[in-house]
Design a protein around this nucleic acid. Structure first.
Lengths: 123, 123
DNA sequence: TCCATATATTAGTATTGACTAATGTGTTTG
DNA sequence: CAAACACATTAGTCAATACTAATATATGGA
């Protein structure tokens, strides 16, 4: 694993809907797994796996207290980064939203418009 | 597609080795597709697809001039974000590098240690 | 010690995404 | 207009990843 691989892994940590929901949930205060599970949709197993992922990506840290494990953002820098995502996305949101022009890319291939374009289903 | 989906898509745009290589390549100056292709490994088709992806994610923009198309970062904010990735990664690099503890997560399941853990191959 | 609670792990499946090779489109130049 | 060039698109394949359900581990308390 070279530096670029580490960077990819770190960034992939953020690039998932469930994980972003988790991060939003613990943005301002540490939470236990069950607290997170109840705040966002998801089941316990799934959330646990995503938390392990976030930890492995250096995005969150865990702190045990009795039978509870509290998760929080790794540090202030990570929080700043999360904030910056929104800032920058503000600039480009329109472009990203016009997904029609790049159906094939990161839109989820079972998205309706993508299925149409790929002629799996008809309009 | 709600706001969170847009954010996920935007972030996924960064979360790939080839795309990061492209971004590094055009970080300081716009480049044509062929220039990018020759600077990093990759073949033309592959790079073209990644460029379409980056464009769709609002990360780069394209400018046509004759038969050439010049790609560059979408704006200064995106450049700042790319810089910030390195800054924050500096803090957490050690944690990310110790991939052993989270084999299953974003390490690539055909990585040697992952294959061992999953008992596909033996140590 | 036995049970309940909190969380992690495993295994299996389905989806998503990256890559290659081949072909298509548009632009310039002879 | 035809050939060459620059780039985009398509289709197909394989690998990576997210999810569910079931099971395992660990902690605290009756």
């Amino acid at each position: 694993m070279d530096y670029l691989d580490l960077k990819v892994k770190f960034l992939k940590g953020f690039a998932d809907r469930t994980r972003l929901e988790i991060l939003e949930s613990i943005m301002d205060a540490e939470k236990t797994v069950l607290q997170i599970v109840s705040e966002i949709h998801g089941n316990q197993s799934n959330i646990s796996q995503h938390l392990a992922c976030l930890k492995g990506c250096g995005i969150v840290t865990a702190r045990q207290e009795g039978k509870f494990i509290y998760y929080s953002l790794h540090d202030e820098q990570v929080k700043r980064l999360l904030t910056m995502f929104d800032t920058v996305l503000g600039d480009v949101e329109q472009q990203v939203a016009s997904c029609d022009k790049n159906d094939q890319c990161l839109c989820g291939k079972s998205e309706l418009k993508c299925l149409i374009k790929r002629r799996i289903i008809s309009p």
